[in-house]
Amino acid sequence: MSEPFTQAEIVAALGQTQEEVGAYFAGLAPGQFMHGNAETWSPAHHLHHLIVSNAPVGRALGLPRDRLPARIATQPSRSYPEMQALYRGALATGVKASGRFLPDPQGNQAELVAGYRQTLDALRVQVQGWNDADLDAYTLAHPALGLLSVREMLLFTLYHNAHHRVGVQNRTQMENA
């Protein structure tokens, strides 16, 4: 993926991510898709985690702006590579999903893939209603990364989706080797 930053680039990247991640998980063999448990997540667990992580971002962006905290800008919004580094740093400290972000995949592979695609459709629609200035003017709280500008949250979301796809791909390749 390139390094999206503008609203238009983020919308395009969300579409690309939806296609790539959705196609990858849809293309796994059903037994492989469900192979795992709460300790060693299956691809189904990873996909459900993305669903429950992406959906709140889309819902938040649909709220009236006056219900979101205004950002007191002490620095410009961070770039895609900076958000990657921030998230990798958090993971290195042992940060893990918890609470409502823990997966509990219900349904079959096709239903989970459809649910995943729907969350990114909804997110893309919401982002289209934002301009670049507002992406920097408002904040959303991330459970591990703290307050982020809306732009930073979207860049994190893009990376988070790619991170899980790559992780599942790597694990699947090792298991098949």
Rank of each mutant, 00 (worst) to 15 (best):
A12G: 03
A13S: 15
E20V: 10
A23K: 06
A29R: 15
A29L: 12
P30N: 11
Q32H: 11
E39A: 13
T40I: 13
S42A: 15
H46A: 14
H48A: 04
H49T: 01
H49P: 08
P56G: 09
A60F: 08
G62E: 08
P69G: 02
P69K: 12
A70N: 08
R78L: 14
S79T: 15
S79Y: 07
Y80P: 00
Y80D: 00
Q84E: 12
L86V: 05
A92W: 09
A92K: 14
T93A: 06
V95N: 03
A97V: 10
S98F: 11
R100A: 13
R100Y: 01
F101L: 14
L102I: 02
P103N: 10
G107A: 09
N108Y: 00
N108C: 03
E111L: 10
A114C: 02
L123H: 03
D132A: 08
A133N: 07
D134F: 05
L135C: 04
D136S: 14
L140Q: 04
H142A: 06
A144Y: 05
L145E: 06
V150H: 01
V150M: 10
E152H: 03
L154M: 11
L155A: 06
L155Q: 05
L155M: 08
T157C: 10
T157Y: 02
Y159M: 07
N161H: 03
H163V: 01
V166I: 13
G167Q: 13
G167D: 05
Q169A: 14
N170M: 11
T172E: 13
Q173I: 04
A177H: 10
